[in-house]
């Protein structure tokens, strides 16, 4: 009896509401599968696509389903160096998802701290931070990332840094807006009267209330970051050419498209597309669930 009266926990309510949408549920399942595949890439892949000694140039550009000279089968075909595309896609997914999630988390933390501080400080500090954010947001993110990589050089660590730089401003702006509203609420005044410290009020009281919109922004941003990483790799600014991620696989296969060897570009492209669509569907549903006004 008492259990029925007690308010259900917000998390449980949200997840119950989430699964009511079948498409979002399917996207969630797909995303989990992709994540598992990426995490288990080294166990699932028939070949280590980054170990040059395992590649055989005589197996280059074989069609999907062809037998490999080592006795296996190239289910999705092989690329111009005789690399098994299935393995390359699994490893590439690991890079894409890893780079996307890691850069988003760091940018989220950074933007959160800056946005909260800016909202609380107000005055000229707030104005200055927001002008910097405006400046940052007025440049296309691909341009900023390209400039950063051109200056800093190539490498996966630099790509992550570049992605953080182009993302933090979104979070800072979102958090600041939400925090300004929350800071005017009575519970903040109450906390101030209770004599709590500045940091405690910001992080224990205000932060939980600004999180829902941030989660939505972050989910969409992961997809954005993955697309950006793929673009940069496509342009040849990513990892070494012997360790192709999805973008570079697509770029390599592009040479063979007119020759009818579609699989080198198409399958990595499909993997990228599925990942981004799944994340966006999940993000959309999260926005609906977490936004009380839309319910």
């Amino acid at each position: 009896m008492s259990a029925m009266i007690a308010a259900p926990s917000p998390l449980r309510e949200a997840s119950a509401s989430f699964v009511r949408d079948r498409i979002a549920l399917a996207a969630m399942v797909l995303l989990c599968l992709l994540l598992t595949a990426a995490l288990g890439a080294s166990l699932l892949s028939p070949q280590n696509p980054y170990d040059l000694a395992q590649l055989d140039i005589l197996d280059a550009r074989l069609a999907p389903g062809s037998a490999s000279s080592a006795g296996g089968t190239y289910w999705l075909g092989s690329d111009g160096q005789g690399r098994d595309l299935l393995s390359a896609i699994l490893y590439g997914l690991r890079i894409s998802l890893g780079v996307g999630i890691l850069s988003t988390l760091v940018a989220l933390a950074l933007g959160l701290a800056i946005g909260l501080a800016s909202a609380r400080a107000g005055g000229w500090i707030d104005a200055l931070v927001m002008r910097v954010v405006d400046l940052q947001l007025s440049f296309p993110s691909i341009l900023v990332a390209l400039i950063l990589l051109a200056v800093a050089g190539q490498g996966v660590d630099r790509i992550i840094v570049a992605l953080i730089v182009v993302q933090w401003a979104y979070y800072a702006r979102t958090v600041r807006g939400a925090a300004l509203v929350e800071l005017k609420r009575e519970y903040v005044d109450a906390a101030v009267c209770a004599g709590y410290g500045e940091a405690r009020i910001l992080f224990r009281h205000v932060l939980p209330n600004v999180l829902p919109p941030l989660i939505v922004v972050a989910t969409v941003q992961v997809a954005h970051a993955i697309a950006l990483e793929a673009t940069l790799s496509f342009l040849g600014l990513g990892l070494p050419i012997t360790e192709p991620s999805l973008g570079l696989l697509i770029a390599n296969g592009y040479t063979y498209l007119l020759a009818g060897q579609y699989w080198i570009s198409m399958f990595p492209g499909l993997a990228l597309l599925l990942t981004i669509v799944a994340i966006n569907l999940v993000g959309d549903r999260l926005r609906d669930v977490l936004n009380p006004r839309l319910q």
């Binding site: 040059l52 140039i57 111009g80 160096q81 070494p240 050419i241």
Partner: peptide, 30 residues
């Protein structure tokens, strides 16, 4: 180079793969 000779970038990777097979572990920069 990756923009000068016919398939230069692919040649670099293939040479790397062939050298690696005999024990000369080769990293490629194109």
């Amino acid at each position: 180079p990756n923009n000068r000779y016919i398939n230069d970038q692919q040649i670099l990777q293939t040479v790397a793969q062939l050298l690696t097979r005999v024990g000369i572990q080769t990293r490629v920069e194109a």
